[in-house]
Design a binder for these strands. Structure first.
Length: 724
DNA sequence: GCATCGGATTTTTTT
DNA sequence: AATCCGATGC
């Protein structure tokens, strides 16, 4: 087997390194995925390690799936037992298996961000606190931060009165989770780390099993993940981590690139391997990336190089506003597709999700298909959450959040009063609401029947029967069949169908969920629910569609495209205004741009708008300060990025762009058509012969009878008047 | 119990 | 601009 074929010396060194800790510092496009897969293959084929004894952790399911496929290819299918997955997925698996020693059942459900916030909110409400003073979002943030640092309520650091309150909410929040037999994302890591900490037998079991641990995107691990790794690999020290400090972009969710330094301390004598050669981008792109990232303080300089040559210059494009920016991008893509580029070669990246809307509109105006990356967009929809809540409740009746969501959706005349009454019974009986509900399925045979008004008892009873049936059926039915059963029983289609376009769209989303469930014919409901809960945005990247991709800079990490647009390069957007007062955050914004730039293989467009509207208000902007760091000789285009535009200059530009914009209106739709009669101030009356769009301008050919000549005019400059 | 209206609030990034 | 929340009225 020629595993080393095509590897450079450093890659080869990483692949063939012996036992013990190994730290691979991999620049963008340096083939780190390749190194990881080859390393796994090498361990199995050359070092006699059984796949069963290898654990490889990635950041997205997509990455782990891809890695699995490649290893499988190299080894011709000899990979049975290999453990591959995201931190969260692997932890979920361990927790289900070890649930006897844990305070929850192995059929626990995973609450998504929405559920988590909702739960914090109900804790706040319960405690009679003001949810204006204690914003659920921000309280949850504090709690999540703590959990990522492995801090439990008891150890929650208290400096202010607010901390004290948050601590109490934290306590209640954890109780509510356990009451529902549910875990949040952070719990998956927290409970696993704790399990390994407190149960030496379990720890040894996994440490022994995972004789070799490999970690991708190590710079984005948080404390909980780091401790987890230490528990697993602390003894045998066969830990192979790959990372790049310059691509650390998740500090805000607890990631700490200093884990790389900790690694060097905790695993002394680690072999460090540097991968600097870039196989992705042209040198101009790499030079721009380095120019941006070099401004970060306290950083070991890396020299990114390629043998691909300088390549095209980066294109800077300034536009009047976000709408014009989007039109420019779509227009440029359309033009290049006509010249033979594949639509799938393009990606448009942006700092905030809100920016995608203008882009989507521009694509739709142009009638061109595109693909938006973002799982939350889909799984966050009401109709999808409804159906998933039904499934979750069937699987785990303890799930109070799903219960609340589902109990009166579609309307079944169970209002707040009735639910309160049910809650009272459930608390008195020390049973979950669903247990009481299931009991009520027995009609007046149920001992609780009398606790309600007749109408309430009937309503509960009939819903209880449904739930009971689904639970029985769930033992046999596959996820898809169960969904169909539920959809049918609750007549969800007519519930959604309110005669509007939106209603139809919602039903189509449900059908899309069905399609996803159909892929689980061989797997169980719990697997379906778990994967759905843990999908990452990147998992929805569809590289087969051959259409341009729209995604946030965060979602772009690890991906590459021949042509990349980074839009909204303005101070306040990138760097984002919320980072202005914190130098560390500003450095992270810079890294974000660095990640974006280094996604591009051949061509890179950097665009910024002179006016941007947020919250419905339009305001003038300054070009991103990061643009100034890119040397002029690497770029071409309208915006003098090297020079900060003075406000007087900007005013002038605003005016001229305004004028241009007024006359030509939407750039891709022609204003004139052949056969029309027009009047020109100097040439007089004439007839339009032909009109076309070029470079965002409408070009009109006109025959002027009085002059006896044909003229080719740019519509936005020539003051043509249409004569009826 | 449910629909409707108006005001507040939101957007940073996500497993 | 769009969504969410609570109060109000039926």
């Amino acid at each position: 087997m020629e595993l080393a074929k095509g590897l450079n010396p450093q890659q080869k060194q990483a692949m063939t390194a012996g036992l013990g800790p190994i730290l691979v510092m991999a620049g963008p496009g340096s083939g780190k995925t390749r190194v990881l897969t080859q390393r796994i293959a090498y361990l199995i084929s050359h070092m006699g390690v059984r796949p069963y004894n290898i654990l490889a952790v990635t950041f997205t399911n997509k990455a782990s799936k891809q890695m699995g496929e490649r290893v499988n290819e190299i080894l011709d299918g000899e990979t049975r037992g290999l453990s591959l997955g995201t931190f969260h997925a692997i932890c979920a698996r361990i927790l289900r298996r070890e649930s006897e020693v844990l305070p929850f059942d192995n059929n626990f459900v995973i609450f998504d961000a929405d559920d988590q916030r909702g739960l914090v909110k109900s804790a706040i409400k319960e405690m009679n606190l003001d949810d204006k003073a204690y914003r659920p979002h921000s309280v949850h943030n504090s709690i999540s931060r703590a959990k990522n640092e492995l801090i439990l309520p008891d150890d929650f650091p208290i400096n202010t009165y607010r901390d004290e309150v948050v601590q109490r909410i934290f306590v209640r929040y954890q109780e509510l989770l356990l009451n529902s037999n549910a875990l949040d994302f952070d719990d998956l890591l927290l409970w696993t780390a704790q399990l390994l900490e407190e149960h030496p037998v379990v720890r040894e079991k996994y440490a022994r099993r995972f004789e070799h641990v490999l970690v991708d995107e190590f710079q984005d691990t948080n404390m909980a993940q780091y401790i987890l790794l230490k528990h697993l690999a602390g003894h045998h020290r066969n830990i192979f981590v790959v990372g790049d400090i310059d691509q650390s972009i998740y500090r805000w969710r607890g990631a700490d690139y200093r884990n790389i330094m900790r690694f060097e301390q905790d695993f002394p004598n680690a072999q460090t391997i540097l991968l600097e050669q870039n196989y992705r981008s042209t040198q101009n792109i790499l030079d721009a990336a380095m120019a941006v990232i070099d401004k970060n303080a306290h950083r070991k300089r890396k020299e990114l190089f390629t043998d691909r040559g300088k390549g095209d210059k980066l294109v800077l494009q300034e536009t009047f506003d976000g709408r014009e920016e989007s039109t420019y991008i779509v227009d440029t893509i359309a033009k290049q597709v006509l010249k033979g580029r594949q639509p799938g070669d393009f990606a448009v990246m942006y700092r905030t999700n809100a920016q995608s809307r203008l882009l989507e509109e521009a694509f739709m105006r142009a009638g061109l298909p595109y693909k938006l990356v973002g799982a939350q967009r889909f799984y966050g929809r009401r109709e999808i959450k409804d159906i998933l809540a039904y499934l979750r409740l069937v699987h785990n009746p303890g799930d109070e959040v799903s219960f609340s969501r589902v109990i009166n959706t579609p309307r079944r005349k169970i209002g707040n009063k009735a639910i309160q009454a049910l809650r009272t019974v459930s608390i008195n009986e020390k049973k979950s609401v669903s247990e009481v509900l299931l009991d009520l399925a027995g009609g007046d045979q149920s001992e609780y029947y009398g606790a309600f008004s007749t109408a309430q008892a009937r309503a509960f009873s009939s819903f209880g029967k449904l739930l009971r049936n689904w639970r029985t059926e769930a033992e046999e039915l596959k996820p898809l069949a169960l969904i169909d059963r539920i959809l049918n029983d609750i007549d969800y289609q007519s519930f959604l169908d309110d005669g509007t376009e939106e209603g139809i769209e919602r039903w189509e989303n449900v059908m899309e969920l069905r399609r996803l469930a159909a892929e689980y014919e061989q797997r169980s409901l719990i697997e379906f629910l778990e994967e759905v809960a843990l999908v990452s945005d990147q998992d929805t990247v569809d590289s087969n569609a051959n259409v341009p991709t729209l995604l946030t800079l965060h979602a772009a990490k690890g991906l590459e495209y021949p042509v990349v647009f980074i839009s909204g390069l303005e101070d306040g957007t990138l760097p984002h205004i919320r980072s202005f007062d914190d130098p560390e955050s500003m450095e992270e914004e810079r890294r974000l741009l660095y990640v974006g730039i280094t996604r591009a293989k051949d061509r890179l467009y950097l665009t910024h708008a002179l006016n941007r509207s947020t919250y419905g208000f339009t305001e003038p902007t300054d070009p991103s300060r990061f643009l100034m760091d890119i040397p002029d000789e690497l770029t071409e285009g309208s915006a003098p990025a090297g020079i900060r535009i003075s406000s007087r200059q900007r005013k002038f530009q605003e005016q001229t762009t305004w004028g241009k914009n007024d006359a030509s209106a939407p750039i891709i739709e022609p204003t004139y058509r052949a056969g029309q009669n027009v009047r020109h101030p100097t040439y007089g009356e004439g007839m339009v012969l032909n009109t076309k769009i070029d470079d965002g301008e409408e070009i009109v050919d006109v025959f002027f009878g009085e002059m006896g000549t044909n003229k080719r005019l740019i519509a936005s400059f020539a003051k043509l008047e249409i004569i009826e």
